[in-house]
Design a protein around this nucleic acid. Sequence first.
RNA 1: GGCCCUAUCGUCUAACGGUUAGGACGUGGCCCUCUCAAGGCCAAAAUACGGGUUCGAUUCCCGUUAGGGCUACCA
Length: 481
Amino acid sequence: MSAPIRVRFAPSPTGFLHVGGLRTALYNYLFAKHHGGAFVLRIEDTDQSRKVEGAIENLIQTLQWAGIDFDEGPGKDGSYGPYIQSERLNLYRSHAEQLIKAGKAYFCFCSPERLDEVRKKQQAMKLPPSYDRHCRDLPKEESDARVAKGEPHVVRMKVPIGGELTFTDRIRGKVTIAHKVLDDQVILKSDGFPTYHLAVVVDDHAMAITHVIRGEEWLPSTPKHILLYQYFGWDQPEFAHLPLLLNPDKSKLSKRQGDVAVEDYRTKGFLKEAIVNFIAFLGWNPGDEREIFSLEDLVKEFSLERVGKAGAVFNVEKLTWLNQQHIRLRPSTELARDVRNLVQQKGWQVPEDAYIIRAVDLMKERVTFVWDFVEFSGYLFVDPETFDPDARAKSWPDGAAERVKALTDRLEQLTSFTHASIEEALKKLAEELNVKAGQIVHPTRYALSGRSVGPGLYEMMEVLGKDTVIRRMKSALEKLD
RNA sequence: GGCCCUAUCGUCUAACGGUUAGGACGUGGCCCUCUCAAGGCCAAAAUACGGGUUCGAUUCCCGUUAGGGCUACCA
């Protein structure tokens, strides 16, 4: 029996959750759930200078909003905690010491200034910048003494001088990198905190992570991690490096060229269903022509084998289309809840739920964002204050007033006010006046909503109700006179 | 600069040696229609380039080009 699958999402708490981060989290989650495994959230806060207040809470909150639940993580202890690296410092220190004892790592006393100088010289000579291994072969007695004296130092891992390292990536296949292009990487900083490279290996092993699914930017440093696994004598996990998310100009997705925080899209009114669906398809597809997927669908279908290798441009237009699709899939009762809040925010009188649901059904197939319900068809909730001046010429031509007046009279006499009875009355009137139905329909819509566009008139009138319809038509006749 | 990764319509992508290179978004047109959407139909639109391998390359190999990533006591 093979070990249960365990994956993790390991962001550093430096601000808002990036959409690229959300996708990494999502793929990890999908992979875990698809295989009945565990999804772990681990916070990589080993850089104290980059810490941002409230970032962890924000991260967790955004993940939860998206529906990506973690099985273990901060505030959700499994048997592998703590899940915040700054609370695991002893672990890293003891492991660094273990490596030093084994001769796989060493103390380095080089000052940042010296390193800077070395780097500058190398660049001047057009050599690839890398640590010159100045402290690598210091006698043990000397370095131990200097440490004991309290001299500032870091710990560096020893990378073999010659040879190369080949590993298999689940997405990219075999990748080979020569040892000589690898630095003797710092694994423990002078402040006693580990660098990413040590912490990620120690924790992934300690937390029994079986698959490391992360962004492509980690591909070049993976050999260092594998070396560490070998030094510790541990089995290494499988690696899968995801393609990057790109700006429209194909550079790495960044601020400057639009929004990158999940939060931004959320406040823009995108549904979590649309965002999750969209992001899942940036680098993955089910292999057939379906493309509207719920999170549950994705769990069912996801596989690493169908993840592509090339970067994907984050293209908002398709996301917008998906938002429209998912709005139509949402139960009207749920949408009505959101709409009620928006109506309240507008300061309008909040109608009863049944009415809101009918209004939602009327507009559901015509909106892209939830607030279109109130921005685009606010007249369903409040009498129009203005009449679109640009539409007036077309929607309120000569003779419109007479026809609307005549229709008002007919409607007042209706005992049953349904779209069918309204349509019948209007068509009959049109026939009698010898005009096309449209010549009454358009002015009436304009009178009722102040707009030239909207849902089917008869259905709209039924939802509005007789009293409102008559009131607005009379009022419009005065205002538009 | 060095190393690594990548390369199909504008964009997301399908095709895992043999297809008229398929779908979706977006764009244009038509239909439907009381308007706007939605929906339906149609159209324009791609294998970066050059060499191989093969009876046959989008597909495999090499090179070129382009893009990206990495090259910190950041992750």
